[in-house]
Design a protein around this nucleic acid. Structure first.
Length: 180
DNA sequence: CGCATTTGACCCGCGC
DNA sequence: GCGCGGGTCAAATGCG
């Protein structure tokens, strides 16, 4: 997990925009990536809230419990609510990009198209239901795709410097995939 | 001892 | 209806 450093040469000046998008993604919109081939910095906000704006929250209002529970707890009250998901790809040697929040891993699955497994994380902050999944691309194993779902309702637990540090560890590679 | 990770089982949606 | 792929839960285990 912790073998950072020694990778890239701080080539991004766009760290600001990234952190911005990550933290304040409430007003989602589609970022257009002009081309798929070369590395454009863009963010993909995938958001298909079918009128349920509450789904967006996790904001201070914290959670009216409209979560999609499946499995045992599910009562059959399953709507097709999609939460906004934000995916981005980064070039990094490590899978775990520490963005300043505390994550607990809760799952790990092999993905069909990928040789690499996908890891599922959940924010450990109480009341915070933000999830993220991390997956390495088969095509480029140097690229890690991280998908965030939901938004944090609390401040970052670590310093922002750290986040910047992370950004220095990776190159924002490009193109955001539309999920869902 | 408390918390995070691991790992297998379980569930659900979807396509055939 | 069944199988597959994806997502989550929870018990066991590990680690600080």
């Amino acid at each position: 997990m912790e073998k950072f450093q020694g990778f890239l040469p701080t080539s991004l000046s766009s760290s600001t925009s990234l952190s911005l998008n990550l933290t304040s993604s409430l007003g989602y919109s589609e970022f257009e990536c002009g081309k798929d081939n070369d590395g454009i910095l863009g963010l993909m906000a995938d958001t298909e809230v079918g009128g349920a704006k509450n789904e967006n929250n996790s904001l201070v209002g914290t959670t009216t419990e409209s979560e999609v529970k499946m499995g045992k707890t599910k009562k059959g009250e399953n709507k097709k609510i999609r939460k906004p998901r934000y995916a981005f790809q980064t070039r990094s040697q490590v899978d775990i990009l520490d963005d300043g929040y505390r994550w607990r891993k809760y799952g790990h699955k092999a993905v069909k198209n990928s040789k690499f497994p996908r890891s599922y994380y959940r924010c450990t902050h109480q009341g915070c239901k933000v999830k993220k999944q991390v997956q390495r691309l088969t095509k480029d194993e140097g690229i890690v795709e991280t998908t965030y779902e939901g938004m944090h309702s609390h401040p970052i637990q670590k310093t922002n410097d750290n986040f910047e540090h992370i950004l220095n560890q990776m190159q924002i590679y490009t193109s955001f995939k539309s999920i869902i």
